[in-house]
Design a protein around this nucleic acid. Structure first.
Lengths: 215, 215
DNA sequence: ACACTAACTAACAAGTTAGTTAATAATATG
DNA sequence: CATATTATTAACTAACTTGTTAGTTAGTGT
């Protein structure tokens, strides 16, 4: 147990109280993301977020004005990356099967890197009816376009593109949303370990490609 | 604006104050199920549940002792039906393909009749880490058994049974969990209408059967 | 060394929410 | 029909949570 003076200079697990706005701000965001992904907006406690960060509750208001302000920034930070990446891939120019495979691979990679994202989006949609964030629309329309191209080309079976898009998205993200419902199936594994994420990605991809293929 | 006296005798939309414990109890349960399915345990307000029912908050404590007591009963009521039904179907005796089809049909029927169930289970798992309810285990082991039988018999491709079980369950219930994320895809439809539920069931079944089939 | 500012804290005010209680209205029963 | 019982309410309390404020500490330029 170090002296009071030195403890005062530390943050969290012996990280020094940094007094660096960039760092503090992003530490609060990280903590908030975890908290919001578990509890949703309303049931999250600003006090708990502050405690995780190792900083006072007042800092949330110093940097983000309100609990809602913090929540908005968390949502924005979560949601930015995937679409631009998909745009760059020029999936329209690939044959439908390959386009679908690339789309799914990218989505799985993205969720593997941001496992909180599906839960935050669920909770946001369920609890706040998308008041603070919508915009899964673009993702869906990209996927639907690929599916319809594939049906027209005869490489996919004659499926309903919208329902199937939902089922594909579901297969990719359900694993993350249901983490705590299913972890008992792998008693000795960490659900977010590299190994498990790769397994999930591989199995999800196989399942999806088999699920749409014209026999 | 009717007189105060007459207003006092009514419940909800002009339903008379019934004073029937059976009815009141189950009305509270219905209201609580909706509320808990939207907000989870912590963020649900007893006041809001009471208001939905058209009864005073104190009635929750009269019938269920505590908010937690009410929540437990809601969870139990949600979760009871599916497993016994599956047991009675003697799926072990059917060939794997048929067993899987029956399993999935039954699960889809059950979730269609109880669309709050998936969301409540999500929220319970995410927010409370299954403190109040676990027991998706039996459902999973039944499904895994069918899959492994099918792989051994060569009627299913060589998939990972646990991951695939998760993907199958996910395909069945994701629709209900993500209701608010996806409803924009059908601007003119009601997501829980008979028509849409049948479509979802049909498409989910096709997707799943195609997803596991050998070759 | 000194003034100045940005980052931060502790303590509190205001509002919300779970749970209680004492009284009252409807119903059943002898 | 009087009385006991059960269902229900209104008004309250205690605990909790958001947001505020007044003041403290650490760094920076002079």
């Amino acid at each position: 147990m170090a002296g009071i003076r030195s403890a005062k200079l530390k943050r969290l697990n012996n990280a020094p109280q940094c007094r660096d706005p960039e760092i503090t701000r992003s530490q609060i965001l990280d903590a908030a993301e975890e908290e919001f992904a578990r509890h949703g907006f309303k049931a999250s406690r600003t006090e708990a977020i502050a405690a995780r960060t190792g900083v006072t509750k007042a800092m949330i208001y110093y940097y983000f004005q309100s609990k809602e302000g913090l929540y908005r920034v968390v949502l924005e930070r979560c949601a930015t990356t995937i679409l631009p990446t998909l745009e760059q891939m020029n999936l329209e120019q690939l044959p439908p099967q390959q386009a679908l495979e690339q789309f799914v691979r990218q989505l799985l990679l993205h969720t593997s890197n941001n496992p909180n994202l599906p839960r935050i989006m669920f909770l946001e949609a369920i609890q706040n009816k998308g008041k603070y964030y919508r915009d899964t629309a673009n993702l869906f329309s990209k996927l639907i376009a690929i599916l319809e191209r594939g049906i027209a080309a005869g490489s996919f079976r004659p499926l309903d593109s919208r329902h199937t898009a939902v089922n594909i998205l579901g297969t990719c993200v359900f694993y993350f949303g249901a983490l705590d419902n299913i972890k008992h199936l792998w008693p000795s594994k960490q659900m977010l370990s590299q190994e498990m994420l790769e397994q999930h990605s591989q199995e999800a991809l196989n399942f999806i490609l088999a699920g749409v293929r014209a026999q």
